[in-house]
């Protein structure tokens, strides 16, 4: 029982990070129609630039926002320089371009940070605490609570603010949105900026658990992608549940089978979903609401 609790906590922690990645995918996809294969690279930049800011002497509470803002600016720049000029081309072209962007950023990461893994100190430095029979790493708790808070903020932003309603309108019907006076291309820039910031947060959160390298974007990007596929491409609540579910599946399979296979299991889940329910588990249940 304790073990089950333990796996559940671990799963939810990692899963909440995947959820952030998945929200990044969903936001860009719904506003631009693009599957952004550079999403994982935003996590890499977030994590490694945070390490660098710490090494430069910034305290953690300043290094984290600095890294998030830097990554958000890069997300914005990617949209303006690479996506925006070719926005009228086919979606396939745009997706291939994001693969190119991903490769480019990864190369840049290699040049700047080299191949050796970097470690990011956890924010919470106290020892593990006992909760409901599980031994909880305070860092895990910190991650989980931060993501919950972030989800609440995102909910308010998307559902309760005027600009959030403009984003949802642009997702649903860009043509009609433009008739309202909404510059849908600036919504696309906003989507990339937001997704990059979310990616950075995910990278910063996961770095103390797994170490950060210039290559880390692939795996975390893949996990976020699978979470999105589980939840259905067009809703944020689905992405959250998909992320948590994937995290839990991984934790349990890692615990009861072998951690060696946990990434293969993520792939397996992806293939199963694509074969049997390509629209996602929640595409019906949660309707069109984001």
């Amino acid at each position: 029982m304790d073990l089950v609790m333990q796996y559940l906590v671990t799963g939810l922690t990692v899963g909440s990070i995947y959820a952030l990645m998945a929200i990044g995918f969903v936001t860009i996809y719904n506003i631009t129609g693009i599957l952004n294969f550079a999403q994982g690279e935003f996590a890499m930049i977030g994590a490694l630039s945070c390490v660098s800011f710490v090494n430069l002497g910034l305290p953690m509470f300043a290094a984290i926002p600095a890294a998030i803002i830097l990554t958000a600016i890069i997300g914005f720049a990617v949209e303006r320089t690479v996506i925006f000029p070719v926005r009228n081309r086919s979606v396939i072209t745009l997706i291939v371009i994001t693969i190119g962007v991903s490769t480019f950023i990864k190369g840049l990461g290699l040049i700047i940070w080299g191949t050796s893994p970097r470690t990011l100190q956890p924010v919470m430095k106290m020892g593990p605490i006992q909760l409901l029979g599980a031994v909880i790493n305070p860092q895990s708790l910190f991650i989980f609570l931060t993501v919950l808070l972030l989800l609440a903020v995102l909910y308010v932003f998307f559902d309760k603010t005027f600009i959030g309603s403009a984003l949802r309108a642009s997702e649903k019907n860009p043509r009609a949105a433009s008739l309202m006076g909404i510059n849908t291309s600036s919504m696309s820039a906003l989507a990339f900026t937001l997704a990059a910031a979310l990616g950075a947060i995910a990278g910063i959160m996961i770095a103390p658990l797994t170490d950060a390298t210039y290559e880390m974007g692939f795996l975390i990007g893949l996990k976020g992608f699978v979470a999105m596929v589980i939840g259905g491409v067009n809703n944020i609540s689905g992405a959250v549940v998909g992320g948590l579910l994937l995290g839990v599946i991984e934790a349990f399979s890692g615990g009861f089978i072998s951690t060696f296979y946990s990434d293969a299991i993520a792939f397996g889940v992806l293939l199963l979903m694509l074969f049997f329910k390509p629209t996602g588990l929640f595409s019906k249940a949660t309707g069109e609401r984001v």
């Binding site: 005027f162 309603s165 403009a166 949802r168 309108a169 997702e171 649903k172 019907n173 043509r175 009609a176 949105a177 433009s178 008739l179 309202m180 006076g181 909404i182 510059n183 849908t184 069109e288 609401r289 984001v290």
Partner: peptide, 30 residues
């Protein structure tokens, strides 16, 4: 289109094209 509205021309498009995922109030505000 988004600049034409600012000049004072508004189109109610064929098929209504309301935002089905937004409330009536949100539709009006947009």
């Amino acid at each position: 289109a988004h600049k034409v509205v600012r000049k004072g021309l508004s189109l109610v498009p064929e098929g209504r094209q309301i935002f089905s995922n937004l409330t009536v109030k949100e539709n009006l505000l947009l």
